[in-house]
Design a protein around this nucleic acid. Structure first.
Lengths: 236, 236
DNA sequence: CGTATTGTTGAGCGTAGTCAAAGTTAGTGG
DNA sequence: CCACTAACTTTGACTACGCTCAACAATACG
């Protein structure tokens, strides 16, 4: 359960065995979420904070017109509502992408943990800095790239992050994202995403079907997506 | 010189007199930048870190096609390359908007300061969390709002942040942003920004001319920009 | 005073959006 | 296990918002 968390942290900071034990020794509560279920709601005061054990989750905001914009997708081992729980009120929503399981900890326990183990606090800080780098990249993606590049870039980022926590170099993942969600990630419409996906499939770059993503040409996909992973700050 | 910094921090965290003295006692170096001059370059390893004393700066990335996307604009009192200096390599550029002056500190001094004064470290962490909230809002702005709303929202954010550091409730600011820069903030072209600005002027919402911004109708502007400042986390 | 930068205008175009309907897959309960 | 339904994907025709290109005007600047 803690594997992905420590694997991620180990690339950025060294934790002592005591730090690790402290993290594992917390009173984590496992909670399951169904597809599209809300994990955190904008405006609520988060009393809990947690990381993903299985599945995916995304951050999201809904604008006046009713349109939704997704701002990031999170994978196992990542904390999803740290930012929200450190502020008085959550400024965005978090939803489950497909079904997911999270390990939750009370805000109180979390602050105590950070106080007693500064290295853990530092790790969490670095996490939020990487998160910020990813948000910046998304501004660029949505602001200055065409539809094909946008969608490809998104896929590249996701695959690259999975690889970094050791999901291996597999070229076939379970990725239960719908075209509507993909559209909300890229600032496009579902109809247009559909056309882009057909194009990418025809170019034999990827195949995304029935919640399963298959990378057919990883190099070509990175080229098409103008992807340079340095903003992810994966050591090595 | 430190006024805006402490004014901002005081809304989120309490600093002791010792903390404050420690900050002011550092060996800050003042540096001036000309319009559009680079403050940090992508790929460089930042050895210094600093905050804006006067003027503005923005974060930016250039994509393959040569297009530039601006990801945030920073005002006096804000730290601009904290994120970059905590990583091995900067993952984006920082440029001066108009002429600006920054107070710089070596990375080494900064880390020492944080270690000796945890409250200062905490304040900086909260800063980066607010930064992240702003990046998220920009993703939404660029991804899901039409051009008029986008430009209005950007202006609202800027004014709102200035007010928060006590630039008063003035309705006329010096804001030396060009239409090209505005376009790079919003993911539009300079030509289209020009047309949007004419529209906003005609609707008697704002007037932006010769580097001077005048708010004619603050309520109307917020409505047009679908602006809700809660994501800025200004206490009170 | 001359030159570079920025702002403005117009005409035509194209990427992505809208709307609507049919086809497909997944999920649920009888 | 099948039937029914809801969610998602695909297709086509048409539209529109914002882009491109190009030229000219105004402003800032050295």
């Amino acid at each position: 359960m803690f594997g992905p968390v420590f694997r991620r942290w180990s690339k950025k900071i060294e934790l002592s065995e005591a730090d690790r034990q402290a993290v594992m020794g917390q009173r984590w509560t496992l909670r399951s979420f169904r597809k599209s279920e809300y994990i955190v709601r904008e405006g609520s005061s988060a009393t809990e904070c947690g990381f993903i054990v299985g599945g995916y989750a995304y951050r999201q905001k809904v604008v006046e017109s009713g349109a939704r914009q997704i701002m990031s997708i999170h994978i196992p081992g990542e904390f999803v509502d740290l930012q929200n729980s450190l502020f008085a009120k959550a400024d965005h929503n978090v939803q489950s992408l497909g079904a997911s399981t999270l390990a939750m900890l009370s805000r109180r326990d979390l602050t105590a943990l950070i106080d007693q183990h500064p290295a853990v606090g530092r790790a969490l800080w670095l996490d939020t800095l990487v998160d910020a780098a990813i948000f910046r990249e998304w501004v660029v993606n949505v602001g200055r790239r065409d539809s094909r590049t946008r969608v490809s870039h998104l896929i590249c980022e996701h695959v690259s992050r999975l690889q970094a926590v050791g999901a291996g170099t597999e070229l076939e993942f379970q990725f239960p994202i719908t075209q509507l969600e993909l559209a909300d990630c890229t600032g496009l419409t579902a109809v247009h995403v559909n056309r882009v996906l057909q194009d990418l499939r025809q170019q034999e770059l990827i195949e995304l079907r029935n919640g399963k993503l298959r990378i057919l040409d990883w190099t070509g996909l990175q080229r098409t997506g103008a992807f340079d992973k340095s903003y992810l700050h994966h050591a090595a």
